[in-house]
Design a protein around this nucleic acid. Structure first.
Lengths: 139, 139
DNA sequence: AATCAACATAGTAAATCAATATGTTAATGG
DNA sequence: CCATTAACATATTGATTTACTATGTTGATT
């Protein structure tokens, strides 16, 4: 289960991607548009900024900005930063103490396969893919 | 994240599948083999029994037994029964109140796709696939 | 210097997890 | 029929996480 933290983070990233015209976007604007409590949103933006996905600037004219172009953010990178490892079981989390019954564990390979399927799916989608795009009238 | 409840449930189902020679298997045997506290295991077996995945019999000679053949249990059915809906986000849980911003939600289809990928993967693996199988010397 | 807005730290109510404790019901065997 | 066996039932607990809220600090503009 992805908690609101991760889900909000993704929505906020899309919001910034869609609304930044090269300038910084204020937290309270995002909070209003996305209907998220300012203070809770702040805690999420801290994670995104510390993780290098956003640039924060204080003072007048300050706010948040993407550090790279939307197509360079995979959904996985955003969710993993805010939610932590996406491993579906504890023994596959990075740094987990290898369980002593791992040698004849019937399930670990199955779980590993699930993790792979999830990672591959979320790696295949970028912020750009989630942005509202103008209708293409060409042809 | 799948909690120990779901993980243990799967291990226990495999244990019963592998060790039942047509007779009932006692809880304390399973607990010992799987190294799970008897009382905690009991709460898991209750779920599996109530859900119809196992048959419980009391008294001497009692224990637990599969209700169908291993290849008829998908991993998904076991995990979903013990963990509840596997929906990755709250708004995709069955019975969730549809969120009012759903009409122009940029992410819901992406989440739905993730849920589909997970469901398909877990539907494609059965208890039989996870059982220890005798080496095949044929050819 | 005043204002603005991100940064920092601490705390809290509610929920969930992983158990444990105690007792009850229903089969079986002597 | 009665003792044993083993599943069923209910309640409680400590630890952790989630989703916030409150208060204060730092650093950029104008």
């Amino acid at each position: 289960m992805i908690s609101t933290r991760g889900r909000y983070a993704l929505r906020v990233m899309i919001d910034i991607a869609e609304n930044s015209g090269g300038h910084y976007i204020k937290l309270d604007e995002i909070a209003k548009r996305q209907n998220i409590s300012e203070k809770y949103l702040e805690s999420i933006l801290v994670i995104l900024t510390r993780g290098g996905l956003l640039n924060g600037l204080r003072g007048k004219g300050g706010g948040y900005m993407l550090t790279k172009s939307p197509s360079d953010y995979t959904v996985r990178s955003i969710i993993e930063l805010t939610e932590g490892s996406l491993a579906t079981v504890a023994c596959l989390k990075p740094g987990a103490v290898p369980c002593e019954r791992q040698s004849d564990c019937r399930t670990i390979e199955m779980w590993r396969g699930l993790d792979d399927v999830i990672a591959k799916y979320l790696d295949g989608i970028t912020l750009y893919d989630l942005m509202e795009k103008p209708i293409d009238y060409s042809i």
